[in-house]
Structures are given as C-alpha cells and as structure tokens.
Design a protein around this nucleic acid. Structure first.
Lengths: 161, 161
DNA sequence: AATTTATGTCAATACTACTGACATAATTTG
DNA sequence: CAAATTATGTCAGTAGTATTGACATAAATT
C-alpha cells in the first residue's frame, strides 16, 4: 500500500527529479518561446523609458492616447484595465512632462479628452521603432515576409470580445 | 518663418489630432496584437496563482525549477534576470508552501540545488494547462495545425545567445 | 592562510497595481 | 427644480515585484 502510494506519486512532499515534458504540457516549447520573445520585445522600449524616468505604464498610456487622440479618461481606463487611482500618477507625469494634454470636452464639459503633443507623438514613435524592427526582422528571418499568418495566430490568442 | 515652424511641427507642445499610422510605425497592428495576446496569455495563470497567494514571479521561478530540477540558485537568478534579494522572498514562500525543496549539493556543499516537490509539479501543470490550450486552439483556428511556423517566428524575436 | 564563491539577509527605495472613501463639477432624470 | 448619476480626481493604506548597497556565513579554491 505504501509502495503503491509511492508509485502513484501520492506524497505531495516527495521530490521530483524529472523535468516537465511535452507529454505533460503540450506546447511547452511555445510557452517558453513566447515568454522570452515578449521579454526581449519589451526590453528595448523599457531602456528608453528609463532615460525619461518613465516605466511601462507610461508607455501603454501614451500608446493608446496616440492611437486614438481625443479619447476620454474613462476609455483609457477601460482599455488599460486598471483603476483610475493607478492611472492618475502616470497620467499626471505624462502631462507634466508635456507628452499629453487634456482638453475639456465640447459636448460634455466633464470630460477631459486626452491628446498627445508633438513631443508625445515623437516619444511613442521612438519607443515603437525597435519593436517594429524586431517584428519585421523576425518575419523576414522566419521566411514569412509580409504574410498575415502571425497576425491571424495572435488574434486567435486574444480573448473574444 | 513662424508658419513654417508650425507647418513642420516644430512646436513640441502642439496638439496632435491624427492617430499614429502604419506609415509611421511599421507592424503597428502586430505590436498591438502581441500586447493583447500576451496579456490574455498570462491572465489565466495569474488567476490561479492569486488563489495560492502567489504572483507572476512565483510562476516563473517554479516553472524553471520544474524545467530543470536540480538547478542551483545562481542558475535560477541568471535565467530570471533578477537579483538574489528579489528572488529570496519568492523562493522562501515557494519552499514554505512545499512546492520547492532545497538539497545540499553533493559535489559542492555550498550549493542549494532546487527541486520541485510532487505538489510543485502539480501546480506548474495546472498553471500551464490553460496556456497550452490557448496556444493549441490559436494554432488550430488560424489553420496552422502543428506547424513550426510560430516557433520559428518566436525564436527570431528573441535576442541572440 | 587568504581569497573567492554560493547563498542568504537586512534596510531603504521605486514602480505599478489594488481597495475604500471622499470631493467637485457637470449632466441627466424624475 | 431637486435629486441622482456620471466623469474625473485625490487621499490614505496596502501589496507584489523589482532595485542598490552592505554585510554575514560556510565551503571551496588558491
């Protein structure tokens, strides 16, 4: 009985010597590749941001404001999926640094529409450049050219809605 | 002269109304897709981890110990790319929770070789399952099956060495 | 015997997030 | 119009993950 438990691995404090295998975890290699790919993908802008005293949160906020100039604070909160308390410091710093400006809504004067300044536009272009280049190069080196295979795959990785 | 500056966008505090374009940022769509894909990819294990009082750092540490049982603390630090002070709390908690155990090195008794317990193995399998399923499903739905296209692309996204 | 290595700890700091409570102004609703 | 709701913002407290710097111990190497 004791040996049966041992054989079936019932003892949860027992050491495991064998590495995880592709049998136990399908797509093991791809899980790992995605981890490292995303890590290196974000490392380039992270370095640039650090020089401005900014972090990744500033990048994301600035990105979406450049993506859709004139969006409201509420829209930005929704797309970032964070609370307004979390956004507040980041947004304040981006405004103080002159990368974003708030404009009172014309139809609804409670709204503070978010616009990038010329400086904010230039910063997001600088942050995006190494990411564009990395993807471009990876597409070329893996023989995909300007195929949409990767785009289709990544769209399928994202939760519906 | 002033109008020339305005036309060329020299005033860095000037508002920008136009969204960023694919002309300014090649691979714009793919940059965004990768952001959302990775976000959803990590959200599933994050939920499970939260139930254990763990975070993403615990996931990464536990993953690599399961990937290579018997690795040293120094090796884990290198692969995670963090400082030992950062790892210490995470590692202590994983050990206290009974997911990892340290074994004195046989050849070098200074080393504390890291092994997953049966419980630690089961946890990493549970965390990896939704990630496997997501990749599997995305490969199928994008018509890639078990092609290695994605693996090749992601390998090219990673920094050499 | 002296130095280096592997590991660990203490303290202070930073960034990004969270919850809860509250405030103000503007819009909408009854 | 008065009351309720909405959009935004702030204050306070907490958590998780990271950092740097300093120091400690035991074991291995020189």
């Amino acid at each position: 009985m004791a040996s049966k438990m041992r054989a079936s691995g019932a003892k949860s404090d027992e050491l495991v010597i064998e590495p995880i295998s592709h049998e136990e975890i399908p797509q093991l290699a791809n899980i790992e590749l995605l981890f490292f790919a995303y890590r290196d993908f974000t490392a380039d802008p992270d370095r640039i941001l650090h020089g401005f005293g900014f972090g990744r949160a500033h990048h994301r906020a600035l990105y979406f404001v450049n993506r859709r100039p004139g969006m409201t604070v509420a829209e930005l909160l929704t797309i970032l999926g964070i609370t307004k308390q979390s956004l507040s410091r980041v947004l304040r710093q981006l405004i103080e640094a002159g990368h974003i400006r708030q404009v009172e809504g014309q139809s609804d004067r409670r709204q503070r529409l978010l616009y990038p300044t010329r400086a904010g536009r230039e910063l997001i272009l600088e942050l995006s450049r190494p990411q564009s280049r990395r993807i471009d190069k990876a597409l070329r080196n893996s023989g995909l050219g300007d195929d949409l295979i990767i785009s289709r795959f990544m769209r399928e990785m994202i939760n519906p809605k």
